[in-house]
């Protein structure tokens, strides 16, 4: 399947759109039916954080899919996946701000200064902001060459997101190792491309 017809593409996009909404649907359903467990705040923080990093890795897997598997069509879904990454990261941040910091800026400031894992997580979200805001076609056209340069920010953002996970390791290295392996694989393809250019 090298190319999609515009009709197939529209259907496929709708399917991906709905798939990406499923975690949110689950969260809202579980919250309304009080199925988030004894500590719903913690469950919400974990679920939204996990989906943000999963979608982030998936977004970054598009280029290697194209390069290694020849899945050119995958590029058509990258913007949506990237925006959903930012969307889940934003919900994650909002839940932390509401339930952990209770919108107490003083406390939030102390937490950001004292806890490196919170700082890098927040920094990753900040770096995603310009990417999300310039994801529309008009911005892509207006920025021209600079658009690509600006979107190089995904690399520091994904590394900060990984640090956010790794710094929280307490009893198990599993998540930190899993995402390290995935991110290294995804970055490997970029290095190959870079080497070819040089």
């Amino acid at each position: 399947m090298a190319m999609l017809t515009s009709r197939q593409l529209r259907i496929a996009k709708a399917v991906v759109f709905i798939l990406c909404l499923l975690p949110l649907t689950y969260i809202v359903y579980a919250a309304l039916t009080e199925n988030l467990g004894t500590d719903p705040v913690k469950s919400l923080i974990h679920i939204t954080g996990e989906w943000a990093i999963r979608l982030f890795v998936l977004t970054m897997a598009i280029s290697p899919m194209r390069a290694w598997l020849g899945w050119g069509w995958a590029l058509r879904f990258r913007r949506m996946l990237g925006l959903y990454t930012w969307f889940y990261a934003t919900i994650h941040l909002l839940i932390v701000t509401t339930y952990i910091f209770a919108w107490d800026w003083q406390l939030a400031k102390i937490e950001l200064a004292e806890r490196a894992y919170i700082f890098v997580g927040f920094a990753a979200w900040v770096l995603m902001m310009p990417l999300g805001l310039t994801s529309n076609n008009r911005a892509v056209r207006a920025l021209r060459k600079n658009w690509g340069r600006l979107h190089m920010l995904v690399y520091p953002a994904v590394l900060l997101a990984w640090l956010h996970i790794a710094w929280q390791v307490r009893s198990s290295y599993f998540d930190a190792v899993l995402y390290a392996v995935l991110i290294i694989c995804l970055l490997f393809q970029r290095f190959q491309k870079l080497k070819k250019r040089l």
Binding site: D39, P40, V41, Y99, I110, Y117, R170
Partner: peptide, 21 residues
């Protein structure tokens, strides 16, 4: 604690409407 401020706690069970912080 390096990971958590110890000034507050969530008394469980809590719910999203009354987080019992």
């Amino acid at each position: 604690h390096p990971r958590w401020s110890q000034a507050y706690e969530r008394r469980l069970p809590s719910s999203l409407l009354s987080p019992s912080r």
